[in-house]
Nucleic acid binder design. Structure first.
Lengths: 329, 329
DNA sequence: GTGAAAGCGCTAACAG
DNA sequence: CTGTTAGCGCTTTCAC
């Protein structure tokens, strides 16, 4: 593998000249530039990004803190932006959390990080802030001073779902949330959804019940069975958990009930997931792509020295599909 | 941020001594070790992995070449292994292909790469081989000399699906494949599935038709509608395309047909996806996790100097669920 | 315009 | 057992 020294030698110039013709950070005469470019072509020279990173303290790589429960749809959207901006994307899972975060930021491999599965009170956030390490969030905390983030407005989303169902005449509504582990750690979207649901129920003077649920079909089946048993008058279910919809549907069918005639199902899901389902699920359009794009874009702009200050709560529309209808009971 | 020099100074030892107490690559007296460790603790020193990488030419980071059509389930499994082995994982999309591959390998940021969406004749593979760059594949080419890979045996899988349906009495079977783009570039799994399907159809003396399909529900709906129109005697559909199952189901229902009474649906899908669907889909259990784990594990073992030589074609079982049954027509 | 040389933070001979 | 020193491949002063 050719190095810059090789190029310099072959072109008969100083090493620093090669560097500068490449970076354009100082004028280079046409003839010299020509010779250098020729040498580069001859030797198929590729700059060694790692060495450059050590010298400049910029790697042009960011990390996406990959959560325990993958909202995989974010990954593609983040990657699209890093790609387009010529950044690298490192996936990172922080197992022992704070310690890992510290390591990650000091190893020198990345310039900044996009945080996911943000908790209401998040020690990782505190740590990054304290060290002034560049980051943005998909999600948000209770306290978000000076932090750039983008999030779905779960308060809006759950209120919207409940209002929609209430207007259809539903009186008994259940909410199937994410895993209890996520509730325990205080994951923002999970806690906010829970609270917003109950708040909306109260506001509309309805009967509401909620339960946590692991991210697999069987758990969804069990949860739904239990809910239907506890409240036979249940006519509507809301969920934001993409992996459980199949189980919900089956549990409903297994009791001889129909969707949407007997039970309406409403989700907070990406259109892609909502339409994968049979019947297609009426859902708040979870804007994975937009969120991933924005968080990444904000981070990179931050890294490039731009003054960004964005805190965005998205309120995407509810798309009516075939899983919901008026309450007939 | 403290550097090794800071530690050396504070502990009153040479820089190399610090390095060696950390690496254990040469004996260090207890007292000195003690002093060094103390200094490290005092200054909250973290080794700068980037600098180390430049010196050792090993980054302990691998890349996953992220394909155009994300089989996202691989990502988690790859990440699990890199994580556990203390490696970093870089996601990489090669847009202008060979050129990008070259850049990726020479930038110094990664030690090796896991290739996905492998083509039967793959110039990326040729390039990596020629440069003796460490890599493994999820998938395989026509010619795989000296390359470690793991793949699902799609020949087996399609034969198995057809045989299963044939034995249930189905005579008219369709196969909904991946996008025509993937066929055009010669993606191994797509081409092999196609050929195996037709081969099995011939072998069982059945009527078979196949068509490509984009990875979304609408495309699945359209493809299925067309198939049912072209051959009203169609009683079974096979697909390996996870995103289209919803569309297939809807197209069937919209013609007043039932699953599995009128039309059987069989997939090559992960259990998680198969059970997300209503009804749950009878499917060859696509072993995403195992494949991701193995490919990553092989690569890392290769990087650590182990002599690995593994070419594995998996033949996972067909799990019968509720989307398939005997041919009643 | 161009060259020489001092780092970036670490590893790994090479000496003792 | 420990210290000195020369890199790793690049950027960036500082001279000329």
């Amino acid at each position: 593998m050719a190095t810059m020294a090789d190029i310099a030698r072959r072109a008969g110039v100083a090493l620093s000249t090669v560097s500068h013709t490449l970076s354009g950070k100082r004028p280079v005469s046409p003839e010299v530039r020509q010779r250098v470019m020729q040498a580069i072509a001859d030797l198929e020279y590729q700059p060694h990004a790692l060495a450059r990173a050590l010298a400049t303290k910029r790697t042009r790589t960011i990390a996406l803190l990959y959560p325990s429960e993958p909202h995989f749809e974010f990954v593609s959207s983040v990657l699209e932006v890093t790609n387009q901006r010529k950044y690298g994307l490192l996936l990172w899972t922080a197992l022992d959390e704070d310690q890992e975060i510290l390591r990650m930021t000091q190893q020198g491999f990345i310039d900044g990080v996009v945080l996911m599965e943000v908790r209401l009170e998040d020690s990782r956030v505190a740590m990054l802030k304290e060290r002034k390490y560049p980051f943005t969030m998909i999600g948000h905390c209770l306290e978000n001073n000076d932090i750039n983030f983008v999030d779905l407005d779960f308060d809006y989303a759950l209120h919207k779902c409940v209002a929609y169902l209430a207007e259809l005449g539903h009186k008994h509504i259940a909410f199937i949330n994410h895993s209890s582990r996520l509730i325990d750690i205080g994951a923002g979207y999970v806690v906010r959804s829970e609270e917003a649901f109950h708040h909306a129920i109260t506001q509309w003077e309805l009967e509401g019940m909620s339960c946590p649920c692991e991210a697999d079909a069987q758990a969804g089946y069990d949860a739904t069975s239990l809910l239907l048993e506890q409240d036979p008058a249940l006519t509507a279910i809301i969920t934001s958990n993409a992996w459980v919809s199949g189980g919900i549907t089956r549990a409903i069918y297994d009791r001889g009930l129909k969707i949407p005639e007997d039970v309406s199902l409403v989700g907070v899901l990406s259109p892609r997931i909502a339409e994968m389902h049979t019947p297609p699920i009426t859902a708040i359009d979870f804007p994975y792509n937009q969120m991933g794009h924005m968080a990444t874009d904000m981070l990179i702009r931050q890294l490039e020295g731009e003054e960004v200050s964005t805190q965005l709560l998205l309120q995407p529309p509810l798309t009516i599909r075939q899983s919901s209808g008026p309450c007939l009971r």
